[in-house]
């Protein structure tokens, strides 16, 4: 196979380092594919690819390997009966998979402790979703995952969030195909009643967002769910569905109107600003401080971000941005009065 030859020649060290994970993934795939094929007397390559969400060629490659694999057997010589076999003609001519001889494997493998833990922690995290409202069902599912693991699931957990009323309303509006209406306060402090066709709910850690078509702005918008108040369902049918509007992968897209701001950041805090640093930003580290560029839609959003990182991030330029941050922080400090309590 050409691909195999290529991997042992050049860039050997890299290939070797990358190999174990890659080979492990392939092994996990083989161990999962075999029981699926056993359960289906005959299945097309296309259907199998769809079931596993992989390219058809990956199924064909795996089936070719399964078809010649087996156990050493009595003679330790991998005799014919010791190997899996498939109906080769059906496979080569019709792209159909039929296993004709089975060895060693009877059933699907158990989850590893970490695999089960990843799914359990993911379920806990999603407890705010209306789909997860049935806590007993979640408990049953968690118990199944634990019992289906080869060892006690490892101790990783995410705090469960309470069911969210807004999320439930969003789901209801999508299910009935009507627009959602709510008060929204943007980061510049403007409150407006918005009418939105909900498209997708996204989250990053404890923050939840709604992406939808905003009828007020006539554009795709991302709304923080905790900035939504007084949501209600209208009787107006939606005009934009998830299938009509391609959603970019990134939650916040840059726009041509974005402002670029130069900041100094402590090196350890750079990852916290990763979402705001545009690709190809000029980033220089000097004397334990990183100077870089962030992209913001307006300085009033920036002032909140910078004020949450005191002594860690400082705006360098432009002067207008510095002034807005200074004014914001000074106004905040002023509320505590001139007679400062002793520290």
């Amino acid at each position: 196979m050409p691909s195999r030859l290529a991997s042992n020649g050049r860039r050997r060290t890299m290939a070797e380092r990358a190999q174990p994970r890659h080979a492990q993934d392939k092994l996990a795939f083989l161990l999962s594919l075999v029981p699926y094929l056993m359960d289906h007397d005959r299945v097309s390559v296309g259907d199998a690819a769809k079931q596993f969400g992989v390219p058809e060629e990956q199924i064909r490659e795996a089936v070719r390997l399964i078809g010649v694999s087996g156990i050493p057997g009595e003679t330790a010589m991998y005799q014919h009966g010791d190997l899996f076999d498939i109906a080769w003609d059906d496979f080569e001519d019709n792209d159909q998979i039929v296993l004709t001889n089975l060895v060693a494997i009877d059933d699907s493998p158990r989850f590893s402790a970490r695999e089960a833990a990843a799914l359990i922690a993911g379920l806990q995290y999603l407890s705010a979703l209306p789909e997860n409202a049935d806590r007993d069902a979640i408990a049953t599912l968690t118990a199944k995952l634990s019992r289906g693991a080869s060892a006690e699931p490892s101790q990783v957990a995410v705090e469960a969030s309470e069911s969210d009323e807004t999320l439930a309303l969003i789901r209801e509006s999508v299910a009935s195909g009507v627009q959602l209406e709510f008060d929204y306060l943007n980061s510049q402090g403007e409150r407006e009643r918005r009418r939105v066709d909900p498209l997708r709910v996204e989250s990053v850690d404890a923050d939840w967002y709604l992406r939808g078509w905003c009828h007020l702005r006539e554009a795709l918008r991302t709304f923080r769910i905790d900035r939504i108040s007084n949501p209600s369902i209208t009787s107006e049918p939606i005009t934009h569905g998830a299938k009509d509007v391609p959603l970019p992968d990134t939650l916040f897209e840059g726009s041509a109107d974005d402002l670029l701001v130069t900041i100094d950041v402590a090196p350890g805090a750079v990852p916290l600003l990763a979402d705001y640093i545009p690709d190809g930003a000029n980033t220089v580290e000097k004397d334990g401080t990183v100077r870089t560029t962030v992209r913001v839609s307006h300085y009033h959003g920036l002032k909140r971000l910078i004020a949450s990182m005191p002594g860690v991030a400082t705006v360098v330029a432009p002067p207008e941005a510095r002034a807005i941050v200074a004014e914001w922080a000074a106004a905040g400090a002023a509320r505590y009065g001139a007679s400062s309590p002793s520290r």
Binding site: R21, D25, F29, S32, S112, A118, Y125, V174, V204
Partner: peptide, 30 residues
């Protein structure tokens, strides 16, 4: 954990169960 959950899903799919399409699209991320 992304690798772990990807492999867990492979094993789940090997059971041959199909999924129901959620009414609302979600893209959660920790």
């Amino acid at each position: 954990l992304s690798g772990e959950s990807r492999r867990a899903i492979l094993k789940l799919r090997s059971l041959g169960v199909t999924t129901t399409e959620p009414v609302l699209g979600y893209a959660p991320r920790v």
